[in-house]
């Protein structure tokens, strides 16, 4: 469910929504979400001074509290 939220937000922010991918890595108490976007879109999900990335993390954390499992969002640098 949280991957869907992250995909929705990321796709709405970028120029190339087809290149948005989220991988979910489930641990015992924590789920790590790895977000990948197109090379030219990284700035769109990070924002000025990291403001957008921080806002996405805050929203993901709030949503995870409802589910009851800690969520960590990693934004991967495009290779």
């Amino acid at each position: 469910m949280l991957s869907e939220l992250i995909i929705y937000i990321a796709k709405s922010l970028v120029d190339e929504p087809d290149k948005v991918e989220v991988e979910e890595i489930s641990g015992e108490r924590t789920v790590v979400y790895e977000l990948k976007v197109g090379k030219d879109d990284i700035g769109k999900v990070i924002g000025k001074a990291g403001k957008t990335a921080k806002a996405i993390r805050t929203i993901v954390t709030a949503a995870s509290m409802k589910v009851g499992k800690r969520a960590v969002l990693e934004i991967l640098e495009p290779s």
């Binding site: 937000i9 921080k54 806002a55």
Partner: peptide, 20 residues
């Protein structure tokens, strides 16, 4: 949860929704 402590989460929602 959407408001958060001192409205911090609300500011994040404001930022993301207005960008979207």
């Amino acid at each position: 949860l959407l408001i958060g402590k001192s409205g911090r989460n609300l500011e994040s929602i404001q930022h993301i929704l207005s960008r979207i």
